[in-house]
Design a protein around this nucleic acid. Structure first.
Lengths: 387, 387
DNA sequence: CGCATTATGCTCGTGCAACGAGCATAAACG
DNA sequence: CGTTTATGCTCGTTGCACGAGCATAATGCG
């Protein structure tokens, strides 16, 4: 199970092109000279590789903008106007979004709406995917779904926010096109690590709170998402009250301590039907009880964050969703619990905690990145070239 | 922070050789034909690559053993008799071991002894390393230390079993040779994942109990060991009693629930000076109190195991050290707690739990693997070729 | 306005590694 | 001892990156 290195002639053939493609995807609006420098390519190689990529409709070159600098301007590498696309389907607790995304993350088409939480929405979304497929034809190379729930393979095994259990998303898959399914928090973390608040750090721990906690560890730009894609379900570690049973079937889940359900419980209210808006309401309230409920959730978040930092040793922690709001509303509660949970040696210089820079577009960006990770491989390029 | 692909001519030039070298290291006693088939090399390429590797004193070829099969026998690829070596220093709670290891894991020289737990042992071990360096000269390419404690960079920031705090191991580093330091449980897990009970699985979670719990997640043969090498310190997640303070400074650490300290506590005994032998004694006892203490530790182990499986989604869990003994002594307690801690959807088909196959040699094997990971790179090969 | 400066892209000859067909070699089998 | 099976070696071919030298396209200054 050693990492396989490229060694076959076939593999070697595409390495340079792949490196440039990945660079273009990761750095939209980079010039050809930027890419050559970053990848250590000679100008001759750059010419050859870009001409190959242009010929196979993978990248285009735009005339350079006036930078004001001296010297010959370098053309900007962009997604090819007839280049590959991925379709991203983002299913959050109450809303959905379907988008066609090109290399570099540009969105060509987008639609969205709200839903009731019924799994029937999958059929509706399949229609949107099919419409994009009809519109873009063979340019559409993958479908990537981001779901607010626990994912195993292409099935949503549990989604507390929507009450789903064992909902397959295979219906989203047009024939002949790969379907990827991932947790929204994990995918948001992937994007955050590569392009957002974690950019530049090698090991990024991302945490999101919406209904429950989710997240992901991203190492060298690769998500540590386990055998079936369920890696990053940190919400089902027993950092909480062992007396509470989680909808997942386990007890004491961290999930139950940090969201609208937890804050409602702290206020002796009945379990809210919609934990997300309950949380927003409590966060907006200035009553001492509400503030204490918020502080309690922030402490629970900080405690678990510290535990995960002990175990996973990230360079940086990034937060999104309600976690950002908790950090803003009760910063001392959060950081106090975080520090107290850390091993002593870490306390002098703990990993910094940063709010998301991508915000609610994180899952979509991450879903697109995950799909392009599959396309920007030897096999993906081969398949593209044959068509 | 995308993974860098090989694209420069220099990188391409060494890819084939690297692939073969890694294969030889991972599969000692493989024949040249095995390697060609596994890597998809044509026989011409195999000839060229092996002759290059032989010329640069990296691999040797032994005459084939009589396999009894038909056809022309294929020579066995071995470590070159003048090939690169790594020095592995294994520091456990009471013992140490220093070994010179060649490609493939063969041990050329080994010495061991016991120590009192004082950090002064580092000076003694530095002497042994220096002796190996003097004996093997430039063949010695790296020193890899495995320590029973929390590691950050090349410093042992905390070792509960030995009472160390902030002990630097830089003294082990001969001039001009890289020093790697890792946690013994993490390195044992690396070896277990690649060559032991986890071989063949893509995502392996390894857990060891000695004094406290340690482990590692290994994905595609790469250890997920964080920014500073402290990743895998699962023992300092608060799965335990929040009233108990851990020597690490945090509260409720899992560390305190599964080892000789935990079992002594359950028996209302004072904290043992040597938790490892206390555990052995309690495990050997047949009194109902002792068995219940063992079962309690097994339950705590199972509970945390389940939590980590929820969060990390491994294909398989491997156990070593005292964890294996707990699993053998109280299998129902362990598996019951494990299953109960899993999210419901996992319970039908949970990741299998397997005992170590490498046993106490795991850390040494893992330390050697970690060092060869550094040597079997373009840079490492370049450095070797220049000398 | 035109030339120097700066920066980049293109052309083309060279080198390296892998490929693959054909041939040589080394065992086991009958 | 020839056949079968399996492997290694030779050598011409291919594809990619390199790098030196030249061409090109902007800025800036007199």
């Amino acid at each position: 199970m050693q990492p396989k290195t490229a060694h076959s002639a076939r593999a070697l053939r595409s390495q340079g092109a792949l490196a440039v493609l990945r660079y273009v995807h990761a750095h939209p609006a980079a010039t050809r000279a930027d890419a050559s420098r970053a990848l250590g390519l000679s100008s001759g190689s750059a010419t050859e590789i870009t001409s190959r990529l242009k010929a196979s409709r993978l990248v285009g070159e735009d005339l350079p903008p006036r930078t004001g600098g001296r010297g010959r301007p370098s053309p900007v590498l962009t997604a090819h106007p007839d280049g590959p696309l991925v379709c991203v389907v983002d299913i959050s607790h109450e809303a959905w979004r379907v988008a066609a995304v090109e290399l570099g993350g540009g969105v060509l088409a987008e639609s969205d709406g709200r839903h009731t939480g019924s799994p029937e929405v999958v059929g509706l979304l399949a229609g949107h995917v099919a419409a994009l497929h009809a519109r873009y034809g063979r340019r559409l190379r993958a479908v990537s779904a981001c779901v607010a729930g626990t994912v195993s393979g292409t099935t949503v095994v549990q989604a507390s926010g929507m009450g789903w259990r064992d909902v397959s998303l295979e219906a989203l898959k047009p024939a002949g096109i790969p379907l990827l399914v991932g947790n929204d928090a994990s995918l948001a973390g992937l994007a955050e690590a590569r392009r957002g608040a974690g950019a530049g750090s090698r090991v990024v721990l991302h945490l999101t709170v919406e209904v429950g906690v989710g997240g992901i560890l991203v190492v060298d730009g690769r998500p540590v998402d386990g055998a079936t894609g369920a890696g990053g379900e940190f919400g089902h570690m027993p950092f909480g009250d062992p007396a509470l049973e989680c909808p997942c079937g386990a007890r004491g889940c961290w999930d139950l301590e940090v969201d609208g359900r937890a804050m409602s419980r702290a206020l002796h209210r009945p379990p809210p039907r919609d934990p997300r808006t309950a949380a927003a309401e409590i966060l907006a309230s200035s009553s001492p009880e509400a503030r204490e409920a918020v502080a309690g959730a922030a402490r629970a978040l900080g405690r678990g964050m510290g535990a995960l930092v002990n175990a996973l040793d990230p360079d940086v922690v990034t937060l999104s969703g309600l976690a950002t709001d908790l950090a803003a509303a009760a910063p001392e509660a959060l950081s106090g619990a975080y520090t107290a949970a850390l091993m002593r040696y870490r306390r002098a210089d703990p990993p910094p905690v940063r709010p998301s820079t991508l915000g609610p577009r994180g899952p979509l960006a991450g879903g697109a990145d995950a799909a392009f990770d599959v396309l920007l491989t030897e096999d993906g390029l081969d398949a593209w070239s044959r068509a």
